[in-house]
Amino acid sequence: MVAANNLLKGGRCLLLSRYNRSFIINGRQLFPLPPSPRKPTLSLSSIASLHSIPSTFTVAIPSPTRGRHVGCLCSVADVVDSSSSNSPSLAPAGSSSPPTEVLDMEAVREAAKLLDIRVGKVLKAWRHPDADSLYVEEVDIGEAEPRTICSGLVKYVPIEDLQDKKVIVLANLKPRNMRGIKSSGMLMAASDAPHENVELLVPPEDSVLGERIWFGSEDEKENQPAAASPNQIQKKKVWEAVQPHLKTDATCIATLDGHFMRTSAGPVVSKSLKNANIS
C-alpha cells in the first residue's frame, strides 16, 4: 500500500481518443482492459481521498460515448507526479501511434488473455501464386471450415515441414488481404535476434485441435475470459502490447514473461531456438 496523496499531487486525466479509448493519467498512457475480480476498482475522484491505495488497481474512467465507466488496470508506477521533469509529455488528442510504454507485466498478462491462440493443423500448403515469400495454408483450428492463412515462411521453413503438421494459430487478428488472398490468422513462430532462423511453434503431439492456449499454471486455464473480437484486438493494440514479451526460454518452451504457453497436453515449444523472440 502506498500513500495516495504522495502519488496524485498535480494529477490529471485526459481522454486521448473516443475511438482508441486510451487515457493519460499524470503523463502515463493507459489502455482499457477487462475488470479483474482480484483488483479493487477506484474512481479518479476517490483515489485522492484515500489514505493509501493498493499496489495494483483498476481506475474507473467515464466513457464519453455511452455514459458508462471504462476500467483501466493501473499500478502505483502508473500514477506519478506530473510536475516531475521526468514525466513524459501528453500525447496529442486522437493519437493512433502504438504505445511506447506498456503497463506493468500483470497488465500485459491480462491483455494476453484477450488473444485467441489455438492449436491447429495444416491440412494443405502451397506457394502463393503472386508473392514469392509467402505460403498459403489451409489450417484446421476446430471450426466448421478450415482457415486460409498466408505466412511469410518460404525463406525459413521447407513446405514439407508444414504439410499435416500441428501448429499454433493466433486466430483473432483482423483478416488481411495479402496479394489477393484473404488471410485469417497467423502461424506463430520463434526467431533468433537477426531473424536468420525461424521455427514454427509446436504443440504437444496429443494436443486437441482447436483448444485455446493459455499462459501460466495448469489451474489458470479456468480463469480465461472470452477472447476479444478482431476489431477490439486491433483498436486496443493488444497484440502490439503482448508480442514484445513473448519469448522461448533456455529449454525452448514458449513463454510470456516466464509463464509457460500451455495446452492441456503440455507446453508449447520451439524445436531448437532458445531465448528467441516469438511472433
Rank of each mutant, 00 (worst) to 15 (best):
E199M: 05
E205Y: 02
A193Y: 10
S191Q: 12
P204I: 02
A190D: 01
S207L: 05
L200F: 10
E205L: 09
L209C: 14
E205K: 13
D192M: 02
L201V: 06
L200P: 03
G185N: 08
V198H: 10
S207T: 05
A193K: 14
M186Q: 07
P194K: 02
P203L: 12
L200W: 08
S207E: 07
E211L: 03
V202A: 15
L209Y: 05
M188K: 11
P194H: 02
L201T: 01
E199R: 06
V208Y: 02
L187T: 05
H195K: 15
P204G: 12
D206M: 10
V198C: 11
E196A: 12
V202Q: 15
V208F: 02
E196K: 11
N197I: 12
H195T: 13
N197R: 15
L209V: 15
G210F: 00
M188C: 06
H195P: 01
V198E: 07
D192L: 00
L187K: 06
A190K: 00
G185P: 12
S207C: 11
G185K: 05
E196Q: 14
R212S: 03
I213G: 03
A193G: 08
A193D: 14
A190W: 02
E211Q: 10
S191I: 00
A193C: 12
P203M: 10
E196I: 00
E199L: 06
E211Y: 02
V208E: 15
P194Q: 01
M186R: 05
